[in-house]
Design a protein around this nucleic acid. Sequence first.
DNA 1: GTGAAAGCGCTAACAC
DNA 2: GTGTTAGCGCTTTCAC
Lengths: 324, 324
Amino acid sequence: MTPNRPTMNDVARTAGVSLKTVSRVVNGETTVAPELAARVHAAVESLDYRPHLGASMLRRNDRRTRTIGVLLDDVSHPFSAALHRAVEDQARAGGIHVLTGSLDRDPVREKALTAAFAERQTDGLILAPSGAELDPHEMPVVYVDRVPTGATGDTVVSTNVSGAAGAVRHLIAHGHRRIGFLGGDRHLSTARDRYAGYQRALGRRAGPAVHDLHDPTDAERAAVSMLRTADPPTALFTTQSMVTIGVVRALRRLGREHSVALVGFDDFPLADLLDPPVTVVAQDPARMGRTAATALFERIDGHDGPPREIRIPTTLIARGSGEL
Amino acid sequence: MTPNRPTMNDVARTAGVSLKTVSRVVNGETTVAPELAARVHAAVESLDYRPHLGASMLRRNDRRTRTIGVLLDDVSHPFSAALHRAVEDQARAGGIHVLTGSLDRDPVREKALTAAFAERQTDGLILAPSGAELDPHEMPVVYVDRVPTGATGDTVVSTNVSGAAGAVRHLIAHGHRRIGFLGGDRHLSTARDRYAGYQRALGRRAGPAVHDLHDPTDAERAAVSMLRTADPPTALFTTQSMVTIGVVRALRRLGREHSVALVGFDDFPLADLLDPPVTVVAQDPARMGRTAATALFERIDGHDGPPREIRIPTTLIARGSGEL
DNA sequence: GTGAAAGCGCTAACAC
DNA sequence: GTGTTAGCGCTTTCAC
């Protein structure tokens, strides 16, 4: 057997003091005689003692684990990854640690992971909701990217409707009248809101639309079909970067990248190096992550106001593909 | 005050059984009369009881938290993010959860986070080491991406030397004799190994080299200077994707993207859509993550063989930029 | 099959 | 200032 990790009792014995004195020193209380404190520190060093956070939190009055959960669509997706990193940075400033999970928009997995995090006593949750939430997560939750239906909690989302409308108006301003829409999962508020923005900008002249696209492959296929119809759109609006990328591939394949305009919602790395460079409505995932983390920490610290719906502005970045 | 979460005691009282019977039911032991078990289940439902993992693990014989730590350079970097995701998927299969952190190659942060994870009793660690490790992490550690000096533990790395040598030989095969090198932090085995591969392929005809580059901005500047020297290289080899991207920008800026060849170590999204498409030595971060997770779980389960150094093969993907 | 008592590592409350 | 006792929520051990 490996030797067990030393406990406070071991430290107390080697330092020749009581358990409680060790506890005081370890927790930085100042009401300990310097000489005793020194002996405790020496014992901690020599035994390589590390406090057991689980045990201390079990007895402590403020039952905090100083750990939060972050549940996003896919930690390897650039948007989720940037948001995750920003949460982590914000958390580090407060000595908070982060449990992560990818949900792939699967409500079953969402339920399993929120339950598992609750068993681990996370202090709160940042969650990209799968759709309808039933609430009792038994801890503060801040929703990101999408507004859940039925749940109460702070929400941090992009200005999806106005961002999408702005993108489409940009295309209209460049002379386009027939504008195709390629979007994601309509169960989610994000896709619905961006479609609403598209419709608002076009009024009753809305063009062909394909929904429920997830990955570049689906999107490429959908775009090719759309452009091969009898009266094809002269411009396309896409609602997420994975769809945008698929559409870029489709346009290349058809040799139409310089004749069909494109604006995508959500920026992505290297969009500016493509030919033509891709015009996007950029979100600010880092700011979303920081904002969500800040809101969550306020809730954990007892803030008890009504649910807040925080909208993070988007920015249209004209690079070329939207100005054809 | 918010009502406290129910405990096993509360469940026992509502079900009219002893605490221990609840414990048995919750842990799925079969030695409980069906009728009692049913009453317990009903009480669990009605109180919305959730076991307290920290408390159970405190008393349990196999002191497992079923949580591991994953510490990488930057969870928002595509390579780290893909590796992270693969670890998560492998962990999920075993009901294991993941604490994450970005180290930015900072040994201070590495020390702080490994200590914090140890206090949280993680069962093991997957770590991209900052350099020299002092070992006692008090738990199994699998190193990824880089080989640490001075530590013992399984390591999962790409075939860096042969991958780099292959890339350079590819350039030589396309007629290049003067090949520049742009690489990362020489404190780390990754950069050193890739430089060794470069040197091995070129023998004494090694070209100009710039080291310790991290981000695209630095790399762009370095590449511009290198190409403006008296006897500039006709081809470039870069050792990481962020450097490769900076070099692509430099070549564009100088209008040399079709005259100076480029092969980069580590693939990146959209490399195939650039002009010219970028030839790379692709790593397999997903496989690295799966392999590291598998190795770690074996160690956690008591496997006690000598440290293993597992090499994941790389693949040269010729796309155009390396065949000029 | 079920339950009572002890104790995991630590902190709270209260004595000295 | 320091130590003692009790107990956080749970599992173990062992008695019934």
